[in-house]
Nucleic acid binder design. Structure first.
Lengths: 154, 154
DNA sequence: TATTGTTATACTCTATAACTATA
DNA sequence: TATAGTTATAGAGTATAACAATA
């Protein structure tokens, strides 16, 4: 099997721990961890189309739609016709969504604090940089055969 | 909101990229990324009980059972009565499971190579260390010494 | 009494394919 | 023709609670 497997497993363990702790912390507010990510994505860029939202999550358009239906039922987001493109719909946070999102950030603070508490400032910066490298290497971009490393995968 | 949010998002992005690429690579073999993790966990410690398997994944016993039912249907794993504890069942890879697992590792090699290709040896080591710190800080499971059952490994 | 596993149940996320409407 | 979104459908993982059998 030849290729180091420590990183994938360590990455999985760290993410799963984060995910589960987040689920538990947000559950009292009736929002899942993934829904939180969606809401936070909306906060960063207002009036996104569903497609753009899916691109940024990143996720699948039909997955995003399923999530939006749930969030709309809770009145946390609202979908409106796009002003220029009659095919598209824009998604925005409702006032209730904004308020809930603020609470969600607060509910997650202890988790982020726990992570930071385990790392020095230098480690923190390094980790973000390394994770970004990994994500980029595995990125949605077309897997160009030229990028693979000859000789490594025997 | 006070606390840095770069790490959680970077962690999520990296894991999701890994997960999706893995799903795509293993799909032709009819196994999901999570099922692969289960099979690989079995490979590392044979004749685990379902409970111990769930602890190591980590996952929920009822989740693991659902996965085992699927894997048993594919004849990749087999469950047998525990020799000492009549309540428990041991789970082992079938010969077909062993063979499939070998193919799964091969199918995933290019993904791991891609990760390694993006990192220097020092970065690779650093990343594993940092991820382990994060997982530990978030309640990552402590790996326990081998508790496989002597004499049961097929 | 505590633990192992099963069963029933429910929900979320995921994703493909066929479809409508619009660009 | 291509794109945005919907609908139908399916499957996989997740987890809780009630339960039986056993330690």
């Amino acid at each position: 099997m030849a290729v180091e497997r420590a990183i994938p497993m360590a990455l999985r363990a760290a993410y799963l721990a984060l995910h589960r702790r987040t689920e538990a912390a947000l559950a009292p507010l009736g929002v899942t961890a993934d829904q939180f990510v969606l809401l936070a994505t909306l906060e960063r860029g207002e009036a996104l189309t569903q497609r753009e939202l899916a691109r940024r999550m990143p996720s699948d358009p039909s997955t995003v739609r399923a999530m939006l239906v749930l969030l709309e039922r809770e009145e946390l987001v609202r979908r409106a016709p796009h002003p220029m493109d009659a095919r598209a719909r824009t998604v925005v946070l409702t006032p209730k969504g904004v308020k809930t999102l603020r609470r969600l950030w607060n509910a997650g603070d202890p988790i982020r604090a726990r992570i930071l508490g385990a790392l020095s400032p230098g480690e923190h910066e390094a980790l973000v940089k390394l994770l970004t490298k990994v994500a980029t290497a595995l990125g949605g971009d077309a897997p160009s055969p030229a990028d693979s490393i000859p000789g490594v995968e025997q």
